[in-house]
């Protein structure tokens, strides 16, 4: 069976209510920490002068060659534990994309969102 579509989300949205438990998402960030014994990686990014961290469960994509400090793109499912809001992304795809133009990528994601928003508005208006 085909998995659900992984929708683009910014790292600063992962820990908000925008992203629900179990959702398939893709996001990006700089790999700042990797704990092989726990199969856990941390992606870090900055937005509006706040640092955001996303925890990644990497057991599905191991072994991989971790490059600390490089930009990564992750695609997987969100797991939110009930007691505290910390979300974990169970990665299905974990690609190094170091050198990516993050600003342009954000623009592309926003353009796509704006397009679908516009379309939904039109559809509901009819």
């Amino acid at each position: 069976m085909l998995p659900a579509a992984a929708v683009f989300h910014f790292p600063w949205e992962i820990n908000t209510d925008v992203v629900k438990d179990g959702a398939s998402i893709r996001t990006f960030g700089r790999l700042t920490d990797y704990l092989p014994e726990e199969s856990k990686a941390i992606l870090t990014s900055h937005h509006a002068s706040v640092q955001h961290q996303v925890s990644i469960q990497t057991s599905f994509v191991e072994p991989f060659d971790p490059i600390i400090g490089a930009q990564y793109i992750v695609l997987g499912e969100i797991e939110k534990s009930e007691d505290h809001g910390e979300a974990i992304v169970r990665a299905r795809v974990f690609n190094c994309v170091d050198g990516v133009d993050v600003a342009l990528l954000q623009k592309a994601v926003n353009e796509q969102r704006a397009f679908f928003m516009e379309r939904n508005d039109e559809a509901s208006a009819q």
Binding site: L2, P3, A5, A6, V7, F8, F116
Partner: peptide
């Protein structure tokens, strides 16, 4: 299965 962020086909 190809995923473009809006669906998988």
């Amino acid at each position: 299965g190809v995923d473009d962020g809006t669906g998988v086909i």
